[in-house]
Design a protein around this nucleic acid. Structure first.
Lengths: 248, 248
DNA sequence: CGCCTATTTGATCTGATTCAAACAATGTGG
DNA sequence: CCACATTGTTTGAATCAGATCAAATAGGCG
């Protein structure tokens, strides 16, 4: 397992999808940020909120989700250290979904005005932020294909490939093993499946010697097999060449 | 039925989600654009392409879609006049999905450099574009909730509400009747359903006197009923107050 | 140890798919 | 203006992937 980077998570993240000059890097490091620990299964912001700051995941897993009236939950994204899950609030006043922690987390809050100021001084960082929200959208689309047109087996395989690839891109995984502190219920809520079915399909993936998943640790035993099962092509993640070795 | 606006579709669209100064409006009108007619069911750009220009829908319906290996199609978005479905290509070099026409269309092509130049001169237009891509993402999320957690009946109802609301926002519908030149197969591909099932559920919606849908024309007989069936809340579309009357 | 949460298993049910075929509408060329 | 081809809609029957319900295990952890 790769040890956590000693770099600023945001810098690390942005450098996985764009390149930064030293000045830009410094500007990111100088960004005023209020760091806050948050317990597991807590909301960070809620649907309907009108946030005046963005949040940056520093540690732990976060998800975006919506509830339906009958009380079903749909998770729309998982976020890892370095991600700014509600960057959109910079341009959309009212939040269309909630943001909650999966695990115990450390989150940094950055005021919108500071982000706006940063973007004004460094337009290329603004472009990178825009780019990041566009990649998020590409991920939504990839999930849509899964939910609409793939059955559970491939859908889960695809998600596992994606998480591993994203973690690897920011140095939190080596491409074989990674932390995946997500319950089967949460997986189901993300993929539009019931917990029971997720469980059975995971057993199938294990039975086919594609993965190991126990105690919050995922190990990919057969990357090609998993990729094939999930029809996973990492192009949509728009990662830099050097962040793609494993997935290529 | 509302007659087509005599304004530039792009101006109309942007003014439905932001406000423009006269100079900004003029700059949009001056944007060099190569107009081109395209037949129905044609690809405009394809997954894997690296476009050097954006396209603007001037007339007709367009969709974004992906194919799976077994040849199933997932439509991820419908686009109407005023939309720029591949605005993202400005910041993402390789396209993660294809763009195809549903009906016969008229499409305007705008070179990336011209868009970049425009955005440089009018940063607020850049913000509006960013905002637009963020709204697209919000729509993806809304669809995800449907595909993952709603059954066919509500899913279809939600989509019909959305299309009507979007058309209305740009003056292409009065809130009761609109053109919906989408086949049941295409509806299925968008919602993750089979054509057969779409057909049966549409009959159910008709039977409950919620809608009429014949010959490419949708009429909403009972807006509240349809809204309720689809749990439709237009907040995610981030429309200006005045574009929301009907949906509120 | 005992509580709480997560995983697992079994049995049953159902929304939606698939397959197959009939029907309607639209458009085309003669 | 009609025969024909094509595309879209509708219907019926059989089947299935996945949901639901219910209950048993297995881990973690104070």
């Amino acid at each position: 397992m790769t040890s956590a980077p000693d770099q600023h998570p945001l810098v690390r993240k942005l450098e996985s999808i764009t390149d930064l000059t030293p000045e830009e890097r410094q500007a990111l490091l100088d960004l005023p940020m209020k760091v806050q620990p948050i317990g597991a299964d807590q909301d960070i912001v809620r649907e309907g909120d009108r946030p005046s700051r963005c949040c940056l995941v520093l540690q732990g897993f976060v998800c975006r989700y919506k509830m339906t009236l009958p009380g079903k939950r749909q998770i729309m994204a998982f976020h890892i250290p370095g991600d700014m899950p509600d960057l959109q609030s910079l341009h959309l006043t009212v939040l269309d979904h909630s943001l909650g922690t999966i695990t115990r987390c450390e989150v940094g809050f950055i005021r919108h005005e500071d982000v706006r100021d940063l973007v004004r001084r460094f337009p290329r960082i603004g472009d990178a932020f825009w780019r990041d929200t566009l990649i998020d959208a590409a991920i939504f689309r990839a999930w849509m294909v899964g939910m609409g047109r793939r059955e559970a087996y491939g859908r889960i395989a695809h998600l596992l490939c994606e998480v591993m690839t994203k973690l690897r891109a920011v140095g939190l995984a080596d491409g074989v093993t990674c932390e995946l502190p997500i319950t089967q219920t949460e997986l189901g809520d993300a993929l539009g499946l019931s917990t029971v079915h997720v469980n059975r399909v995971l057993q199938e993936l294990r039975g086919n010697d594609l993965i190991t998943l126990r105690g919050g640790t995922l190990t990919v035993l057969d990357w090609d097999g998993l990729k094939t099962a999930g029809e996973f092509d990492p192009a949509y993640l728009q990662l830099d060449r050097e962040h793609l070795d494993r997935a290529a």
